[in-house]
Simulated assay, not measured.
Amino acid sequence: MARFEELKEKGNFPLGEKNEAYAQFFTGQSYLKALAQAPDGHFGVGNVTFEPGCRNNWHRHLGGYQILLVTGGQGLYQEAGKPAQLLRQGDVVVVADGVKHWHGATADSWFSHVAITAGQAEWLEEVSDQDYAQAHPGK
């Protein structure tokens, strides 16, 4: 289980500031550091860090995609209608255009990933506490 200090002080990318701009789409505290923007504006790259138990709402990327490169801690990724996947450092997730999904930290670990995102995010409903608890491996 990753602790805050591990990701802040030894992470591959800066932690960033509290993610106030997107706070309404997250349960719990996240941190965001913009890393790069494509010269043509087609996609952006950011480091997102989640405190234990933090996750984003269900959402989809319209007219684009999202690629998640896991850089630390343990997290969860789930597509609608499928079981959740446990994510660890080195894992890569490719989310196709329009796929409803969510991602975030496990209940007992910090989690960090680099998100490469193209298209417009459509934010949907929160991931319920019950659904989040059931997403953990072994539940």
Score class of each variant (00 low, 15 high):
Val45Ser: 11
Leu69Pro: 08
Leu62Asn: 15
Gln85Leu: 12
Leu68Trp: 02
Tyr65Phe: 15
Leu87Ser: 03
Gly41Lys: 08
Gly41Asp: 08
Pro39Ala: 10
Ile67Cys: 02
Thr71Leu: 09
His42Leu: 15
Leu86Glu: 04
Gln74Ile: 06
Val48Trp: 14
Thr71Ala: 09
Gly44Asn: 15
Gly73Asn: 10
His61Arg: 09
Pro83Gln: 00
Gly46Thr: 15
Gln78Asn: 04
Ile67Gln: 03
Gly72His: 11
Leu76Arg: 02
Ile67Phe: 02
Pro39Glu: 12
Ala80Pro: 01
Gly75Ala: 03
Pro52Met: 12
Val93Glu: 02
Val48Gln: 14
Gly75Thr: 08
Pro83Asn: 02
Gly72Leu: 11
Trp58Pro: 01
Gly73His: 10
Val70Pro: 09
Gly46Arg: 14
Ala84Glu: 00
Ala38Arg: 11
Ala80Ser: 10
Gln89Ile: 11
Lys82Cys: 00
His61Phe: 03
Leu76Val: 10
Gln85Met: 06
Gln66Gly: 09
Val93Leu: 02
Thr49Pro: 12
Asn47Phe: 15
Thr71Tyr: 06
Gly41Thr: 03
Asn47Thr: 14
Gly64Cys: 04
Val45His: 09
Asp91Thr: 07
Arg55Thr: 02
Tyr65Ser: 12
Gly63Asn: 09
Val48Pro: 12
Gly64Met: 00
Trp58Cys: 04
Gly72Ile: 12
Ala38Asp: 15
Asn57Tyr: 08
Leu76Cys: 04
Thr49Cys: 14
Gln66Pro: 11
Gly64Ile: 07
Thr49Leu: 14
Arg60Gly: 10
Ala80Phe: 06
Val70Arg: 03
Gln85Ala: 06
Tyr65Pro: 01
Gly81Phe: 01
Pro39Gln: 11
Gly72Lys: 11
Lys82Glu: 06
Val48Ile: 15
Asp40His: 10
Gly64Asn: 00
Val93Gln: 01
Gly41Cys: 09
Leu68Cys: 08
Gly75Asp: 03
Pro39Trp: 10
Glu51Leu: 06
Tyr77Gln: 00
Gln78Arg: 00
Gln66Glu: 15
Gln89Trp: 11
Pro83Cys: 04
Trp58Val: 10
Phe50Asn: 10
Phe43Gly: 08
Ile67Pro: 02
Gly41Arg: 07
Val93Asn: 03
Gly53Pro: 05
Val93Cys: 01
Gly46Asn: 15
Phe43Tyr: 13
Gln89Cys: 13
Val48Met: 15
Val70Ser: 11
Ile67His: 07
Lys82Thr: 06
Pro83Asp: 02
Tyr77Cys: 05
Lys82Met: 00
His59Ala: 08
Cys54Ile: 08
